[in-house]
Design a binder for these strands. Structure first.
Lengths: 233, 233
DNA sequence: AGATGCCATCAGGAAATCCCTGAGGCGGGT
DNA sequence: ACCCGCCTCAGGGATTTCCTGATGGCATCT
Protein backbone atom coordinates (compact mmCIF):
# COMPACT_ATOMS: atom_id res chain seq x y z
CA UNK A 1 0.00 0.00 0.00
CA UNK A 2 2.63 2.46 -1.07
CA UNK A 3 0.65 5.60 -1.63
CA UNK A 4 -2.47 7.30 -0.36
CA UNK A 5 -2.50 10.18 -2.69
CA UNK A 6 -6.02 9.77 -3.93
CA UNK A 7 -7.13 11.93 -1.02
CA UNK A 8 -9.66 10.33 1.29
CA UNK A 9 -9.95 6.64 1.97
CA UNK A 10 -8.46 6.19 5.35
CA UNK A 11 -8.52 9.35 7.39
CA UNK A 12 -11.51 10.69 5.53
CA UNK A 13 -9.62 13.91 5.00
CA UNK A 14 -6.98 14.81 2.47
CA UNK A 15 -3.87 16.09 4.21
CA UNK A 16 -2.47 19.36 2.97
CA UNK A 17 0.99 20.73 3.68
CA UNK A 18 1.61 24.48 3.39
CA UNK A 19 4.85 26.20 2.44
CA UNK A 20 4.92 29.99 2.54
CA UNK A 21 7.30 32.46 4.12
CA UNK A 22 4.46 34.69 5.32
CA UNK A 23 2.93 33.43 8.56
CA UNK A 24 -0.19 35.42 7.85
CA UNK A 25 -0.75 33.61 4.60
CA UNK A 26 -0.18 30.23 6.22
CA UNK A 27 -2.64 31.12 8.92
CA UNK A 28 -5.22 32.28 6.40
CA UNK A 29 -4.86 29.22 4.22
CA UNK A 30 -4.83 26.97 7.24
CA UNK A 31 -8.08 28.25 8.68
CA UNK A 32 -9.65 28.18 5.26
CA UNK A 33 -8.66 24.59 4.63
CA UNK A 34 -9.37 23.25 8.09
CA UNK A 35 -12.96 24.37 8.04
CA UNK A 36 -13.61 22.20 5.00
CA UNK A 37 -14.98 18.78 5.91
CA UNK A 38 -12.78 16.90 3.48
CA UNK A 39 -9.49 18.73 4.02
CA UNK A 40 -7.04 19.19 6.84
CA UNK A 41 -3.67 20.89 7.21
CA UNK A 42 -1.05 18.36 8.27
CA UNK A 43 1.93 20.66 8.44
CA UNK A 44 3.53 23.98 7.55
CA UNK A 45 6.94 25.31 6.69
CA UNK A 46 8.38 28.69 5.90
CA UNK A 47 11.23 27.61 3.68
CA UNK A 48 12.45 24.73 1.55
CA UNK A 49 14.76 22.94 4.01
CA UNK A 50 12.23 22.74 6.82
CA UNK A 51 9.53 21.74 4.33
CA UNK A 52 11.60 18.79 3.17
CA UNK A 53 12.34 17.81 6.70
CA UNK A 54 8.78 18.00 8.02
CA UNK A 55 7.18 16.40 4.99
CA UNK A 56 8.55 13.01 5.95
CA UNK A 57 6.48 12.68 9.10
CA UNK A 58 3.52 14.72 7.90
CA UNK A 59 2.82 12.45 4.93
CA UNK A 60 0.77 14.98 2.99
CA UNK A 61 -1.63 14.13 0.17
CA UNK A 62 -0.98 17.53 -1.39
CA UNK A 63 1.50 20.38 -1.14
CA UNK A 64 0.70 24.06 -1.49
CA UNK A 65 3.92 25.92 -2.21
CA UNK A 66 4.52 29.63 -2.55
CA UNK A 67 7.08 30.58 -5.17
CA UNK A 68 8.78 33.37 -3.26
CA UNK A 69 10.65 31.78 -0.41
CA UNK A 70 13.83 32.90 1.24
CA UNK A 71 16.76 30.86 0.07
CA UNK A 72 15.83 28.23 -2.50
CA UNK A 73 12.54 29.31 -4.04
CA UNK A 74 9.36 27.31 -4.46
CA UNK A 75 10.33 25.92 -7.82
CA UNK A 76 13.61 24.62 -6.47
CA UNK A 77 11.71 22.98 -3.66
CA UNK A 78 9.28 21.48 -6.11
CA UNK A 79 12.08 19.98 -8.16
CA UNK A 80 13.68 18.50 -5.08
CA UNK A 81 10.37 17.01 -3.99
CA UNK A 82 9.88 15.50 -7.42
CA UNK A 83 13.05 13.49 -6.99
CA UNK A 84 11.48 11.53 -4.16
CA UNK A 85 7.77 11.96 -4.76
CA UNK A 86 7.14 11.85 -8.48
CA UNK A 87 3.38 11.90 -8.18
CA UNK A 88 2.62 13.87 -5.03
CA UNK A 89 0.16 16.59 -6.09
CA UNK A 90 1.59 20.09 -5.82
CA UNK A 91 -0.21 23.42 -6.16
CA UNK A 92 2.00 26.43 -6.76
CA UNK A 93 0.83 29.65 -5.16
CA UNK A 94 2.24 32.95 -6.27
CA UNK A 95 1.68 36.65 -6.15
CA UNK A 96 3.32 37.11 -9.50
CA UNK A 97 1.71 37.41 -12.87
CA UNK A 98 0.78 34.06 -14.25
CA UNK A 99 2.60 34.71 -17.47
CA UNK A 100 5.87 34.87 -15.61
CA UNK A 101 5.81 31.67 -13.65
CA UNK A 102 2.93 29.40 -14.54
CA UNK A 103 4.60 27.71 -17.47
CA UNK A 104 7.82 27.36 -15.56
CA UNK A 105 5.95 25.80 -12.66
CA UNK A 106 4.27 23.18 -14.81
CA UNK A 107 7.56 22.27 -16.40
CA UNK A 108 9.03 21.83 -12.95
CA UNK A 109 6.31 19.32 -12.22
CA UNK A 110 3.51 21.30 -10.62
CA UNK A 111 -0.09 20.12 -10.91
CA UNK A 112 -1.54 23.57 -10.69
CA UNK A 113 -0.81 27.28 -10.42
CA UNK A 114 -2.86 29.93 -8.71
CA UNK A 115 -2.31 33.58 -7.85
CA UNK A 116 -2.77 35.07 -4.42
CA UNK A 117 -4.99 37.65 -6.04
CA UNK A 118 -7.57 34.95 -6.66
CA UNK A 119 -10.56 34.63 -4.40
CA UNK A 120 -10.01 32.25 -1.53
CA UNK A 121 -12.63 29.81 -2.80
CA UNK A 122 -10.60 29.35 -5.96
CA UNK A 123 -7.84 27.90 -3.85
CA UNK A 124 -10.21 25.22 -2.61
CA UNK A 125 -11.39 24.56 -6.13
CA UNK A 126 -7.79 24.19 -7.23
CA UNK A 127 -6.94 21.86 -4.36
CA UNK A 128 -9.88 19.55 -5.08
CA UNK A 129 -9.21 19.49 -8.78
CA UNK A 130 -5.63 18.53 -8.20
CA UNK A 131 -6.59 15.86 -5.69
CA UNK A 132 -8.75 14.37 -8.42
CA UNK A 133 -5.63 13.99 -10.48
CA UNK A 134 -6.39 16.88 -12.78
CA UNK A 135 -4.46 20.05 -13.47
CA UNK A 136 -5.60 23.45 -12.26
CA UNK A 137 -4.92 26.60 -14.25
CA UNK A 138 -6.80 29.82 -14.82
CA UNK A 139 -8.94 29.81 -17.90
CA UNK A 140 -6.71 32.32 -19.62
CA UNK A 141 -3.64 30.23 -18.91
CA UNK A 142 -5.28 27.05 -20.07
CA UNK A 143 -6.06 28.60 -23.40
CA UNK A 144 -2.58 29.94 -23.80
CA UNK A 145 -1.09 26.55 -23.05
CA UNK A 146 -3.37 24.80 -25.49
CA UNK A 147 -2.58 27.28 -28.20
CA UNK A 148 1.09 26.92 -27.56
CA UNK A 149 0.70 23.18 -27.70
CA UNK A 150 -0.97 23.33 -31.08
CA UNK A 151 1.38 25.93 -32.50
CA UNK A 152 4.51 24.41 -31.08
CA UNK A 153 4.03 20.86 -32.35
CA UNK A 154 3.90 19.88 -28.69
CA UNK A 155 5.18 16.40 -28.01
CA UNK A 156 8.92 16.52 -28.40
CA UNK A 157 9.67 20.01 -27.16
CA UNK A 158 8.82 20.89 -23.63
CA UNK A 159 11.01 23.91 -24.09
CA UNK A 160 9.54 26.52 -26.45
CA UNK A 161 13.00 27.94 -26.99
CA UNK A 162 13.79 24.90 -29.13
CA UNK A 163 11.29 26.13 -31.70
CA UNK A 164 13.47 29.16 -32.32
CA UNK A 165 15.80 29.08 -35.27
CA UNK A 166 19.50 29.51 -34.66
CA UNK A 167 19.46 33.13 -35.58
CA UNK A 168 16.41 33.82 -33.49
CA UNK A 169 17.91 32.17 -30.45
CA UNK A 170 21.05 34.17 -30.90
CA UNK A 171 19.07 37.36 -30.89
CA UNK A 172 17.03 36.16 -27.94
CA UNK A 173 20.14 35.61 -25.85
CA UNK A 174 21.56 38.98 -26.74
CA UNK A 175 18.31 40.61 -25.71
CA UNK A 176 18.51 38.76 -22.41
CA UNK A 177 22.02 40.07 -21.97
CA UNK A 178 20.63 43.57 -22.19
CA UNK A 179 21.67 44.46 -25.70
CA UNK A 180 19.45 46.77 -27.73
CA UNK A 181 18.12 46.26 -31.22
CA UNK A 182 20.63 48.60 -32.78
CA UNK A 183 23.53 47.05 -30.92
CA UNK A 184 22.49 43.54 -31.88
CA UNK A 185 22.25 44.54 -35.52
CA UNK A 186 25.80 45.82 -35.40
CA UNK A 187 27.09 42.76 -33.62
CA UNK A 188 25.49 40.39 -36.10
CA UNK A 189 26.36 42.61 -39.07
CA UNK A 190 22.81 42.78 -40.31
CA UNK A 191 20.24 45.48 -40.70
CA UNK A 192 18.16 46.74 -37.81
CA UNK A 193 15.16 45.66 -39.82
CA UNK A 194 16.38 42.12 -39.81
CA UNK A 195 16.77 42.09 -36.08
CA UNK A 196 13.29 43.51 -35.72
CA UNK A 197 12.07 40.70 -37.87
CA UNK A 198 13.68 38.11 -35.62
CA UNK A 199 12.17 39.74 -32.60
CA UNK A 200 8.77 39.57 -34.20
CA UNK A 201 9.21 35.87 -34.90
CA UNK A 202 10.39 35.21 -31.38
CA UNK A 203 7.44 37.05 -29.93
CA UNK A 204 5.11 35.03 -32.05
CA UNK A 205 6.66 31.71 -31.15
CA UNK A 206 6.72 32.46 -27.46
CA UNK A 207 3.28 34.10 -27.42
CA UNK A 208 4.65 37.41 -26.21
CA UNK A 209 2.67 40.54 -26.79
CA UNK A 210 5.31 43.23 -27.11
CA UNK A 211 8.94 44.15 -26.73
CA UNK A 212 8.66 44.55 -22.98
CA UNK A 213 7.41 41.03 -22.47
CA UNK A 214 10.15 39.79 -24.74
CA UNK A 215 12.80 41.57 -22.73
CA UNK A 216 11.26 40.28 -19.53
CA UNK A 217 11.18 36.71 -20.80
CA UNK A 218 14.72 36.90 -22.10
CA UNK A 219 16.11 38.37 -18.90
CA UNK A 220 14.38 35.84 -16.72
CA UNK A 221 15.53 32.98 -18.84
CA UNK A 222 19.08 34.27 -18.79
CA UNK A 223 18.95 34.64 -15.02
CA UNK A 224 17.56 31.19 -14.42
CA UNK A 225 20.66 29.53 -15.73
CA UNK A 226 22.11 29.13 -12.29
CA UNK A 227 21.72 27.41 -8.92
CA UNK A 228 21.11 23.73 -8.51
CA UNK A 229 20.18 23.31 -4.85
CA UNK A 230 22.05 20.40 -3.33
CA UNK A 231 19.82 17.34 -3.47
CA UNK A 232 18.53 16.51 -0.02
CA UNK A 233 18.84 12.79 0.28
CA UNK B 1 -16.99 64.01 20.16
CA UNK B 2 -14.78 64.26 17.11
CA UNK B 3 -12.68 61.16 17.34
CA UNK B 4 -12.82 57.64 18.74
CA UNK B 5 -9.32 56.66 17.87
CA UNK B 6 -8.20 55.70 21.35
CA UNK B 7 -9.52 52.23 20.60
CA UNK B 8 -12.10 50.96 23.05
CA UNK B 9 -14.43 53.18 24.97
CA UNK B 10 -17.77 52.70 23.35
CA UNK B 11 -18.06 49.46 21.43
CA UNK B 12 -15.55 47.74 23.63
CA UNK B 13 -13.67 46.67 20.52
CA UNK B 14 -11.29 48.62 18.37
CA UNK B 15 -12.43 48.52 14.75
CA UNK B 16 -9.81 47.53 12.22
CA UNK B 17 -10.03 48.06 8.48
CA UNK B 18 -7.93 45.88 6.17
CA UNK B 19 -6.52 46.82 2.77
CA UNK B 20 -4.69 44.13 0.83
CA UNK B 21 -5.00 42.88 -2.71
CA UNK B 22 -4.64 39.23 -1.69
CA UNK B 23 -7.92 37.73 -0.46
CA UNK B 24 -6.00 35.04 1.38
CA UNK B 25 -4.12 37.60 3.41
CA UNK B 26 -7.29 39.51 4.25
CA UNK B 27 -8.91 36.29 5.33
CA UNK B 28 -5.94 35.33 7.47
CA UNK B 29 -5.66 38.72 9.12
CA UNK B 30 -9.41 38.88 9.58
CA UNK B 31 -9.68 35.58 11.40
CA UNK B 32 -6.65 36.44 13.46
CA UNK B 33 -8.03 39.80 14.53
CA UNK B 34 -11.60 38.73 15.08
CA UNK B 35 -10.68 36.08 17.56
CA UNK B 36 -9.14 38.70 19.82
CA UNK B 37 -11.53 39.97 22.46
CA UNK B 38 -10.61 43.61 22.02
CA UNK B 39 -10.40 43.79 18.25
CA UNK B 40 -12.82 43.42 15.37
CA UNK B 41 -12.57 43.81 11.61
CA UNK B 42 -14.98 46.48 10.42
CA UNK B 43 -14.23 46.34 6.74
CA UNK B 44 -11.92 45.26 3.94
CA UNK B 45 -10.81 46.54 0.57
CA UNK B 46 -8.53 45.28 -2.15
CA UNK B 47 -7.46 48.61 -3.57
CA UNK B 48 -7.19 52.27 -2.73
CA UNK B 49 -10.42 53.57 -4.31
CA UNK B 50 -12.69 51.04 -2.64
CA UNK B 51 -10.84 51.51 0.63
CA UNK B 52 -11.54 55.24 0.60
CA UNK B 53 -15.13 54.64 -0.27
CA UNK B 54 -15.84 52.00 2.35
CA UNK B 55 -13.91 53.72 5.13
CA UNK B 56 -16.58 56.38 5.44
CA UNK B 57 -19.25 54.04 6.71
CA UNK B 58 -16.92 51.62 8.44
CA UNK B 59 -15.45 54.26 10.74
CA UNK B 60 -12.34 52.32 11.64
CA UNK B 61 -10.13 52.99 14.64
CA UNK B 62 -7.14 51.68 12.76
CA UNK B 63 -6.13 50.87 9.22
CA UNK B 64 -3.89 48.02 8.14
CA UNK B 65 -2.61 48.73 4.66
CA UNK B 66 -0.50 46.62 2.37
CA UNK B 67 1.97 48.57 0.28
CA UNK B 68 1.64 46.60 -2.93
CA UNK B 69 -1.80 47.34 -4.28
CA UNK B 70 -2.95 47.44 -7.85
CA UNK B 71 -3.21 50.98 -9.09
CA UNK B 72 -2.24 53.57 -6.49
CA UNK B 73 -0.08 51.82 -3.91
CA UNK B 74 -0.45 51.73 -0.15
CA UNK B 75 1.62 54.85 0.38
CA UNK B 76 -0.57 56.82 -1.98
CA UNK B 77 -3.60 55.60 -0.13
CA UNK B 78 -2.02 56.56 3.16
CA UNK B 79 -1.32 60.08 1.97
CA UNK B 80 -4.86 60.47 0.72
CA UNK B 81 -6.22 59.25 4.02
CA UNK B 82 -3.99 61.68 5.88
CA UNK B 83 -5.66 64.59 4.12
CA UNK B 84 -8.94 63.78 5.81
CA UNK B 85 -7.86 61.81 8.86
CA UNK B 86 -4.65 63.32 10.18
CA UNK B 87 -4.55 61.16 13.26
CA UNK B 88 -6.19 57.88 12.28
CA UNK B 89 -3.69 55.17 13.23
CA UNK B 90 -2.27 53.33 10.24
CA UNK B 91 -0.13 50.21 10.18
CA UNK B 92 1.72 49.54 6.96
CA UNK B 93 2.08 45.89 6.06
CA UNK B 94 4.56 44.83 3.44
CA UNK B 95 6.40 41.90 2.06
CA UNK B 96 9.21 44.15 0.94
CA UNK B 97 12.52 44.77 2.53
CA UNK B 98 12.22 47.21 5.39
CA UNK B 99 15.12 49.31 4.25
CA UNK B 100 13.30 50.29 1.09
CA UNK B 101 9.94 51.19 2.54
CA UNK B 102 9.85 51.59 6.29
CA UNK B 103 11.34 55.05 6.51
CA UNK B 104 9.28 56.16 3.56
CA UNK B 105 6.12 54.87 5.21
CA UNK B 106 6.75 56.80 8.40
CA UNK B 107 7.41 59.97 6.48
CA UNK B 108 4.13 59.46 4.66
CA UNK B 109 2.40 59.39 8.01
CA UNK B 110 2.29 55.75 9.04
CA UNK B 111 2.26 54.83 12.71
CA UNK B 112 3.95 51.52 12.16
CA UNK B 113 5.55 49.20 9.65
CA UNK B 114 5.60 45.44 9.71
CA UNK B 115 6.67 42.77 7.26
CA UNK B 116 4.53 39.84 6.26
CA UNK B 117 7.43 37.62 7.19
CA UNK B 118 6.80 38.46 10.82
CA UNK B 119 4.97 36.02 13.04
CA UNK B 120 1.25 36.63 13.16
CA UNK B 121 1.31 37.58 16.83
CA UNK B 122 3.61 40.44 16.01
CA UNK B 123 0.83 41.93 13.95
CA UNK B 124 -1.40 41.98 17.01
CA UNK B 125 1.41 43.49 19.06
CA UNK B 126 1.84 46.17 16.43
CA UNK B 127 -1.87 46.91 16.28
CA UNK B 128 -2.17 47.32 20.03
CA UNK B 129 0.93 49.46 20.26
CA UNK B 130 -0.38 51.75 17.59
CA UNK B 131 -3.79 51.95 19.20
CA UNK B 132 -2.02 53.15 22.33
CA UNK B 133 -0.70 56.03 20.30
CA UNK B 134 2.79 54.67 20.00
CA UNK B 135 4.83 53.76 16.95
CA UNK B 136 5.60 50.17 15.97
CA UNK B 137 8.80 49.19 14.23
CA UNK B 138 10.97 46.12 14.29
CA UNK B 139 13.80 46.32 16.76
CA UNK B 140 16.33 46.35 14.00
CA UNK B 141 14.54 49.20 12.29
CA UNK B 142 14.17 51.17 15.49
CA UNK B 143 17.88 51.02 16.10
CA UNK B 144 18.65 52.00 12.58
CA UNK B 145 16.32 54.97 12.77
CA UNK B 146 17.80 56.13 16.04
CA UNK B 147 21.28 55.82 14.75
CA UNK B 148 20.36 57.71 11.66
CA UNK B 149 18.77 60.36 13.81
CA UNK B 150 21.96 60.76 15.79
CA UNK B 151 24.29 60.69 12.84
CA UNK B 152 22.21 63.21 11.04
CA UNK B 153 21.45 62.72 7.41
CA UNK B 154 23.62 60.49 5.31
CA UNK B 155 25.25 57.13 5.85
CA UNK B 156 22.46 54.62 5.53
CA UNK B 157 22.19 54.77 1.76
CA UNK B 158 23.71 51.59 0.49
CA UNK B 159 20.46 50.99 -1.31
CA UNK B 160 20.17 53.46 -4.21
CA UNK B 161 16.43 52.88 -4.34
CA UNK B 162 16.08 54.88 -1.15
CA UNK B 163 17.04 58.00 -3.08
CA UNK B 164 13.95 57.69 -5.21
CA UNK B 165 10.91 59.71 -4.28
CA UNK B 166 7.71 57.84 -3.46
CA UNK B 167 6.23 58.50 -6.84
CA UNK B 168 9.41 57.52 -8.60
CA UNK B 169 9.62 54.27 -6.71
CA UNK B 170 6.03 53.52 -7.55
CA UNK B 171 6.75 53.97 -11.24
CA UNK B 172 9.91 51.94 -10.90
CA UNK B 173 8.02 48.99 -9.48
CA UNK B 174 5.36 49.15 -12.15
CA UNK B 175 8.05 49.15 -14.79
CA UNK B 176 9.54 46.10 -13.15
CA UNK B 177 6.16 44.43 -13.26
CA UNK B 178 6.21 44.84 -17.02
CA UNK B 179 3.82 47.75 -17.35
CA UNK B 180 4.35 50.23 -20.17
CA UNK B 181 4.53 54.00 -19.96
CA UNK B 182 1.00 54.49 -21.17
CA UNK B 183 -0.40 51.86 -18.88
CA UNK B 184 1.36 53.34 -15.87
CA UNK B 185 0.03 56.77 -16.70
CA UNK B 186 -3.49 55.39 -16.73
CA UNK B 187 -3.03 53.47 -13.51
CA UNK B 188 -1.68 56.48 -11.66
CA UNK B 189 -4.13 58.86 -13.30
CA UNK B 190 -1.45 61.19 -14.56
CA UNK B 191 -0.22 62.27 -17.96
CA UNK B 192 2.16 60.17 -20.01
CA UNK B 193 4.47 63.14 -19.86
CA UNK B 194 4.56 62.94 -16.12
CA UNK B 195 5.47 59.29 -16.17
CA UNK B 196 8.20 60.03 -18.66
CA UNK B 197 9.46 62.65 -16.31
CA UNK B 198 9.65 60.15 -13.45
CA UNK B 199 11.46 57.71 -15.65
CA UNK B 200 14.00 60.38 -16.48
CA UNK B 201 14.55 61.13 -12.80
CA UNK B 202 14.88 57.47 -11.95
CA UNK B 203 17.42 56.97 -14.69
CA UNK B 204 19.40 59.89 -13.42
CA UNK B 205 19.35 58.74 -9.81
CA UNK B 206 20.29 55.19 -10.65
CA UNK B 207 22.79 56.20 -13.33
CA UNK B 208 21.01 54.35 -16.09
CA UNK B 209 21.71 55.35 -19.66
CA UNK B 210 18.46 54.60 -21.39
CA UNK B 211 15.01 53.14 -21.08
CA UNK B 212 16.18 49.64 -21.70
CA UNK B 213 18.65 49.69 -18.84
CA UNK B 214 15.91 51.04 -16.67
CA UNK B 215 13.58 48.24 -17.65
CA UNK B 216 16.33 45.72 -17.11
CA UNK B 217 17.19 47.10 -13.69
CA UNK B 218 13.56 47.20 -12.63
CA UNK B 219 12.84 43.68 -13.81
CA UNK B 220 15.89 42.22 -12.16
CA UNK B 221 15.17 44.00 -8.93
CA UNK B 222 11.59 42.79 -8.95
CA UNK B 223 12.79 39.26 -9.52
CA UNK B 224 15.20 39.20 -6.65
CA UNK B 225 13.51 40.78 -3.64
CA UNK B 226 15.65 38.36 -1.72
CA UNK B 227 19.46 38.61 -1.59
CA UNK B 228 20.73 42.15 -1.38
CA UNK B 229 20.13 42.59 2.28
CA UNK B 230 21.47 45.92 3.44
CA UNK B 231 23.52 45.12 6.50
CA UNK B 232 22.02 47.03 9.38
CA UNK B 233 25.26 48.13 11.02
C1' DA C 1 9.97 19.62 -61.40
C1' DG C 2 6.79 22.28 -59.04
C1' DA C 3 4.59 23.41 -54.76
C1' DT C 4 5.12 24.38 -50.14
C1' DG C 5 7.38 25.97 -46.12
C1' DC C 6 10.82 27.71 -43.16
C1' DC C 7 14.69 30.68 -42.82
C1' DA C 8 17.47 34.89 -43.36
C1' DT C 9 17.39 39.28 -45.00
C1' DC C 10 15.46 43.83 -45.68
C1' DA C 11 11.89 48.24 -46.67
C1' DG C 12 8.07 51.47 -45.90
C1' DG C 13 5.36 53.79 -42.84
C1' DA C 14 2.26 54.69 -38.89
C1' DA C 15 2.21 54.61 -33.91
C1' DA C 16 4.40 54.65 -29.69
C1' DT C 17 8.41 55.79 -26.92
C1' DC C 18 12.38 57.98 -25.72
C1' DC C 19 14.74 61.95 -24.39
C1' DC C 20 15.92 66.81 -24.03
C1' DT C 21 14.41 71.48 -22.72
C1' DG C 22 11.60 74.04 -20.04
C1' DA C 23 8.15 75.41 -16.59
C1' DG C 24 4.57 76.31 -12.87
C1' DG C 25 2.87 75.21 -8.16
C1' DC C 26 3.74 73.56 -3.56
C1' DG C 27 5.98 72.54 0.65
C1' DG C 28 10.16 72.50 3.65
C1' DG C 29 14.33 74.13 5.24
C1' DT C 30 17.88 78.24 6.35
C1' DA D 1 12.47 85.57 1.38
C1' DC D 2 15.03 82.26 -1.14
C1' DC D 3 16.40 77.81 -2.64
C1' DC D 4 15.55 73.09 -3.50
C1' DG D 5 13.17 68.93 -4.26
C1' DC D 6 8.90 66.87 -5.68
C1' DC D 7 4.85 66.46 -8.67
C1' DT D 8 2.89 67.76 -12.63
C1' DC D 9 2.80 68.66 -17.60
C1' DA D 10 4.15 70.47 -22.85
C1' DG D 11 6.69 70.73 -27.26
C1' DG D 12 9.22 68.44 -30.55
C1' DG D 13 12.98 65.88 -32.73
C1' DA D 14 15.18 61.23 -32.45
C1' DT D 15 14.40 56.26 -31.96
C1' DT D 16 12.02 52.10 -31.51
C1' DT D 17 8.16 49.29 -32.09
C1' DC D 18 5.17 46.93 -34.88
C1' DC D 19 2.43 45.77 -38.95
C1' DT D 20 2.52 44.66 -43.82
C1' DG D 21 4.86 42.99 -47.21
C1' DA D 22 8.96 41.32 -50.36
C1' DT D 23 13.12 38.66 -52.13
C1' DG D 24 15.96 34.75 -52.58
C1' DG D 25 17.87 30.37 -50.65
C1' DC D 26 17.36 25.81 -49.27
C1' DA D 27 14.84 21.58 -47.96
C1' DT D 28 10.96 18.65 -48.13
C1' DC D 29 6.87 16.74 -49.92
C1' DT D 30 4.21 15.14 -53.94
Amino acid sequence: MPNRSQSTFQTGKAKVFLVDDHPIVRQGLGLLINREPDLVVCGEAEDAPSALQRMASAQPDLMVIDISLDGPDGLELLKTIRLKEPILPVLILSMHEESTYAERSLRAGANGYIMKQEATERVLVAIRRILEGKVYLSERLTNKMLEQFVHGAGASNNNPLTTLSDRELEVYRLIGAGHGTRQIADELHVSVKTVESYQAHIKEKLSLRNARELLQHAIESSLSEKSAFGAAD
